[in-house]
Nucleic acid binder design. Structure first.
Length: 869
RNA sequence: GCCGGAGUGGCGGAACUGGUAGACGCGCCGGAUUCAAAAUCCGGUUCUGGCAACAGAGUGUCGGUUCGAGUCCGACCUCCGGCACCA
């Protein structure tokens, strides 16, 4: 390999071959060392890797390879989130089967990942669309049905009236079906749900323990769970005089502000509330019906008012509710600002203390009673903050918290209500009316109802060899697939033709990697590896995926399959990959986006961009914003082309160097060139060193000052890089530190025996420091430096603290806080001695002059600030 | 509207615990090499003034604390992301 010219294509293929032959990255449960499970979110096999994948998986690989070098027993697996809508869209478009399309994509993308040199244990690879994977998910679901954690109820879907099919949210474009262009309707159908709300409290409290998760993600999850404490209480329906009605109904309301109940001036039911039909009086029934119908047909978008808030629409029912606090009736309205899906779908309205109620009261001419005194001089509408209670009889004078507690106690004493906690979080609807997903393992029997498919009849296999006739799911269109017999009574019955939400598969794949081949969902190996020590993925999954997988982990725990409460102890969310955009405008006003690869930027003498032109025809183009790589802005950069041209190491290096992993990464072709230049320089420097032949052993006692200085820089660098990679995760600064060291080595012109020994020590260390980031070139240089072992098995370099002892330190001398000199002094010098040297300095003298020294601040070995006046 | 995050050279970014602002890289300028170009190597590069030594200014804005503030405190501005009638 000792080629004087760095040839990444050749080296990378050779090194990868050696890893494969040695099965270098297979994870074993019985291996030495503490376990370390490093997991990157699995990709959807869309067809080709994009830059976001490269970034995500390089971060994971850097961490994995570092941990391996530190002696940990590392598991780093990879798999495919293989079910999903794009396969169906491609199938309809190209007339192929989703399965064939998916498997072809997986094959291509697997090769791309291998070409990038990620240290995966490929023996654990999985694809979620395979029956041997999803059968366990089906079994789990049937168990959840038995436990009552999976249940059925009606829920709304987007219905395309022309294509006669349910649309996923992403298939609805501006309120119309993506293919038919017909306005989408809401339709209620029966669907399966998982009771994630049973775990709301635990999912919320668990966040407090997740110190290794970004605060942003934890905050988003807290808001999503949306815990609110308050009271729920019943109110009787009555007439305007407060007379109770025969066969009267009761309405339950939830409120977080029971302290304001004396200010209730009306009450509201959601349009979908079950009592809506029953409560309206004869004179109001027609108006109520009309309103409910129109509320169902109108989207939120249609109701956006000019100021961006939603129009407060509603209608009076003719009925009243008795306010138990005041013993006075309040009018009952129907309004669509009250949601059926939260609380009880009914509220007490207190315009004086709630902004929404204020707005509604304003529109409908309802009275306002203030029950909390706003601060003096306050000019707003509803006062929602703390203050002394007023107009509230026995609550008057109390603050918000005291009044709440009093009101709740009163409700409980009276037996009409109680303390209540509500969550925004809704149960997880897992039914999808799509083909390319895991079949929901349920059989519908006319007599026995919904029956879980028994274990010995699992998996319910999705047929893969299908043809799409239009947009219908092939298993919905095929009457034969549906036909079966009831497992309970043996009568003719039908299979469920809906499939699972694909978040179902991605909720437990991390655990299955730990039990490859197990004839159960998981086996005891899962407890060896779990929880995941480091999880890496995009922030776009902050809520859904990361909530579902925390939930599913608890389902696995409660089924006795894992011991831990949380699936992952640390989480890293990488930033977006962004790039410049360029465009031209045609005469008809259309914008045409030009790919950055086609553009050349012209600059002035200082490097400021002046303009840009298209390479192909020299025509000027406009410079747009720096935006997320996307097809629509035509600013995507294909990783494959870069790997072909510069090599995997270079692409990996630039991805890690351009910014810290959690920030957005601005792609730059010249930056990639810079990374490539660095690797070529490293290669050339090592070749120059090895061309001098073998080195003698390093003897620290015999080093001259220059040699000691290089050793000091080296061991400072080892310390910094170790800290950057293990604690700070700032791979960019780790690389910068190595670059700095290599710049010093390039100037270290010392062919003496000990000079070459120092150089040798330095390169052996650098090759290991860079190995997690650019493993191929490092493996080759490791051999070039005479090492016979494989680098992937080499230990992380150790810091020699004795080499870091400085002969001299730079002490900054300030006069009145301004830097006036930098002195090279012996370490440990005291204030008086430092002052003596400082005062000999001409520049310091000039600024001190004959002024009185009022104060001296001395930070040993760093700074001396002379305060004069 | 609410909740997060961020504002530092021409650009990406560094400065980790209040102590040298601009590491490292890109770009740009100058030089070497070359018939020439590419590649490579050397030097310079926050702004203003100065041949220079050096001086002054400077981390979104305004104010504060401190011997000393990019970093801490208060008020504000801008941008990005998330949620959005959740009672």
């Amino acid at each position: 390999m000792s080629d004087p010219v760095y040839n990444p294509a050749e080296i990378e293929v050779q090194v990868q071959q050696r890893w494969q032959e040695n099965d270098a990255f297979r994870a074993r449960e019985d291996a030495q060392g503490e376990k370390y499970y490093c997991l990157s979110m699995l990709p959807y096999p869309s067809g080709a890797l994009h830059m976001g994948h490269v970034r995500n998986y390089t971060i994971g690989d850097v961490i994995s390879r570092y941990q391996r070098m530190c002696g940990r027993n590392v598991l780093q697996p990879m798999g495919w989130d293989a079910f999903g809508l794009p396969a169906e869209n491609a199938a309809i478009k190209n007339n192929t089967a989703p399965a064939a399309w998916t498997y072809a994509n997986i094959d291509h993308m697997r090769e791309q990942l291998k070409r990038l040199g990620f240290a995966y244990d490929w023996s654990r690879e999985l694809a979620t669309c395979k029956p041997e994977y999803y059968r366990w998910e089906q079994l789990m679901f049937t168990r959840l049905m038995e436990k009552g954690l999976a249940y059925r109820r009606d829920a709304e879907v987007n219905w395309d009236p022309v294509d006669q099919t349910v649309l996923a949210n992403e298939q609805v474009v501006d309120g119309r079906g993506w293919r038919s262009g017909a306005p989408v309707e809401k339709k209620s159908i029966t669907q399966w749900f998982l009771r994630i709300t049973d775990y709301a409290e635990e999912l919320l409290n668990g966040l407090d323990q997740l110190d290794g998760w970004p605060d942003a993600v934890k905050t988003m999850q807290r808001n999503w769970i949306g815990r609110s404490e308050g009271a729920e209480f019943g109110m009787d329906v009555c007439d305007a005089q407060g007379n109770s009605l025969a066969g009267a109904y009761q309405v339950n309301v939830f409120t977080t502000r029971p302290d304001t109940a004396f200010g209730m001036t009306y009450a509201v039911l959601a349009p979908e509330h079950p009592l809506v039909d029953k409560i309206a009086t004869d004179t109001h029934r027609e108006a109520v019906r009309e309103f409910v119908a129109s509320a169902r047909a109108t989207t939120e978008l249609d109701r956006l008012a000019v100021d961006g808030s939603l129009e407060k629409r509603g209608v009076f029912t003719g009925a009243y509710l008795m306010n138990p606090f005041t013993r006075k009736p309040v009018p009952l309205y129907i309004a669509d600002y009250v949601l059926m899906g939260y609380g009880t779908g009914a509220i007490m309205a207190v315009p004086g203390q709630d902004e929404r109620d204020w707005e509604f009261a304003e529109v409908h001419g309802l009275p306002v009673v203030r029950t909390v005194e706003p601060p003096e001089g306050w000019q707003g509408k509803a006062w929602t903050e703390d203050g002394p209670a007023i107009n509230s009889e026995w609550l008057n004078g109390l603050n918000m918290e005291e009044a709440k507690q009093q009101a709740i106690s009163w409700l409980e004493e009276q037996g009409i209500g109680q303390r209540k906690v509500n969550y925004r979080l809704r149960d997880w609807g897992v039914s999808r009316q799509r083909y390319w997903g895991c079949p929901i393992p349920v059989i519908y029997c006319p007599d026995c109802g919904a029956v879980p498919v028994p274990e010995d009849q699992l998996p319910v296999v999705l047929p893969e060899d299908v043809t799409f006739m239009g947009v219908q799911s092939p298993i919905k269109a095929d009457p034969e697939w549906r036909q079966t017999t009831c497992p309970k009574c043996g009568a003719a019955a039908e299979r469920e033709t809906d499939t699972f939400d694909t978040f179902m598969e991605s909720s437990w794949y991390y655990a299955r990697y730990c039990s490859p081949g197990a004839q159960s969902q998981l086996d005891e190996r899962a407890n060896y590896w779990l929880p995941v020590d480091q999880y890496i993925g995009g922030i776009e999954h902050a809520i859904l995926h990361l909530m579902y997988f925390r939930f599913y982990h608890r389902l696995l725990r409660d089924a006795g399959m894992v011991d831990s409460d949380e699936p992952a102890t640390r989480l890293l969310c990488q930033g977006m990959v962004i790039a410049d955009t360029y465009y031209t405008e045609s005469d008809d006003g259309h914008t045409h986006w030009v790919n950055p690869a086609d553009v050349e930027v012209e600059r002035d003498a200082k490097g400021k961009p002046l303009g840009a032109k298209r390479r192909s025809d020299g025509q000027p183009v406009n410079i747009g914003a720096v935006e997320k790589m996307s097809k629509s802005k035509n600013n995507g950069v294909d990783p494959q082309g870069l790997v072909d041209r510069y090599g995997a190491d270079c692409v990996r290096l630039f991805s890690m160097f351009a910014s810290p992993p959690d920030q957005s990464l601005e792609w730059s072709d010249s930056g990639v060139e810079g990374a490539s230049r660095f690797l070529r320089r490293v290669w050339a420097q090592v070749m120059r060193h090895t061309s001098g032949g073998a080195c003698v052993a390093l003897d620290p006692a015999r080093l001259n000052a220059g040699q000691k200085e290089i050793r000091r820089l080296l061991h400072d660098t080892i310390a910094k890089v170790s800290d950057d990679i293990s604690r700070r995760y700032t791979f960019n600064t780790a690389i910068a530190a190595v670059m700095e060291l290599s710049n010093h080595l390039a100037k270290f012109d010392d062919d003496s025996e000990q000079g070459r020994a120092v150089m040798h020590e330095a390169w052996l260390a650098i090759v290991r420091l860079l190995n997690p980031i650019t493993p191929h070139i490092c493996e080759a240089l490791w051999a070039e430096l005479g090492e016979t072992s494989a680098l992937y098995q080499a230990p992380w370099p150790e810091v020699d603290e004795s080499a870091r002892v400085r002969q001299q330190v730079t002490v900054v001398v300030q006069v009145n806080g301004k830097v006036r000199a930098r002195l090279e002094l012996e370490p440990g010098i005291d204030q008086d001695a430092a002052m003596a040297v400082a005062m000999e300095n001409e520049n310091v003298q000039r600024h001190v002059e004959d002024k009185t020294v009022r104060k001296i601040i001395h930070v040993p070995d760093r700074l001396l600030n002379i305060v004069v006046g």
